[in-house]
């Protein structure tokens, strides 16, 4: 009995030791496999990263090159000497500050408008129970499916009859009446705020405007920030809007101005790339500082599909 017991104990000890050794070996193997796997993954991610950064790096590099190095072979990666004068030249010849002022005016006014209007509409859709709001919501989603070319021509005629063509108004005013995507995005966000907050405020005698302004908006800062950034960048980058509505060079935005400069003066790559860096950099900086808002925003628009 005793012997059997000790035998069993020894055996179980043996088993335990085997198990421990086995386990250690397995962990080791897994670690090695994990290490190998992560090397493999990095080996594919790094070339991809190189390819993705290439346009921007080449833009940056060319923006500092003298003319003779544009098409040099082998390609000149780090220009020597740095032709810093491309930047002041670009700013001067492309009338950068004029276009910057125009672009900022349009982008800021459109962003303010879209924030106010979309949040009011989203409040109505998410926080006020009224008949017909579902229908309005479906219509809102439906406009997302409508190609902009369908409304492009009649809108142009309308703005022409109003005398607004060749002004910034067609690029700003429509945004003061809401944007479908932003209404959708804010509605989804507003719906996550507990209804009890609104009900309690209503019992306390607060009207809807007060609830909207002092309860819902302060709780929705991340979503509002997302809308503001998306709209600002959309207006900053917008090309077809200014192309359709602006014909006077004094009114041009940066995108349109740089394109027009290229069509008029051709391949002055140093200046063109310097200007390109100047219009890209602000967005990249915005992205770096507000990365979380960006990523959340993109994920938000993708919810529900």
């Amino acid at each position: 009995m005793q012997g059997a017991k000790t035998e069993m104990a020894v055996e179980s000890q043996q088993v335990q030791a085997d198990f421990a050794r086995d386990h250690a070996r397995r962990v080791m193997a897994r670690r090695l496999r994990g290490f190998g796997r992560s090397i493999l993954i990095h080996a594919s991610l790094i070339p991809a990263a190189f390819v993705f950064t290439l346009p921007f790096l080449w833009m940056l590099s060319t923006s500092l090159k003298p003319d003779v190095q544009f098409y040099a072979y082998p390609p000149v990666v780090i220009p020597s000497p740095f032709q810093w004068s491309n930047y002041p030249d670009a700013v001067k010849f492309i009338t950068f500050f004029l276009y910057l002022r125009n672009t900022l005016t349009i982008a800021v006014l459109a962003t303010i408008g879209v924030l106010i209007s979309s949040s009011l509409v989203a409040y109505s859709l998410a926080r006020i129970p009224w008949r017909g709001r579902n229908f309005l919501f479906i219509l809102t989603i439906a406009t997302l499916m409508l190609p902009f070319q369908v409304t492009m021509i009649p809108l142009f005629i309308v703005f022409k009859n109003l005398g607004w063509v060749n002004s910034w108004l067609p690029l700003i005013v429509p945004h003061w009446f809401g944007g479908a995507l932003y209404i959708f995005l804010l509605r989804q966000f507003f719906m996550t705020i507990p209804m009890e907050l609104s009900e309690a405020a209503r019992i306390d005698g607060a009207n809807e405007l007060k609830i909207y302004y002092s309860i819902i908006l302060p709780l929705s800062k991340p979503a509002l920030a997302t809308v503001a950034i998306f709209e600002f960048i959309a207006r900053w980058r917008d090309y077809i809007g200014p192309l359709i509505y602006l014909s006077d060079q004094e009114q041009y935005t940066l995108s349109l101005g740089i394109y027009e400069y290229q069509t008029q003066y051709g391949a002055e790559w140093g200046l063109l790339m310097a200007a390109s860096v100047l219009i890209t950099l602000p967005i990249i900086l915005l992205f770096f500082f507000l990365q979380k808002t960006f990523v959340q925003g993109i994920a938000l628009t993708g919810i529900k599909g």
């Binding site: 090309y239 995108s255 740089i258 200007a275 219009i279 890209t280």
Partner: peptide, 17 residues
Amino acid sequence: TIYFLPTLVPEVALALV
């Protein structure tokens, strides 16, 4: 961040480069 970069570049700048 790197993979996202090209989507930030304005279309004019991207097309030119």
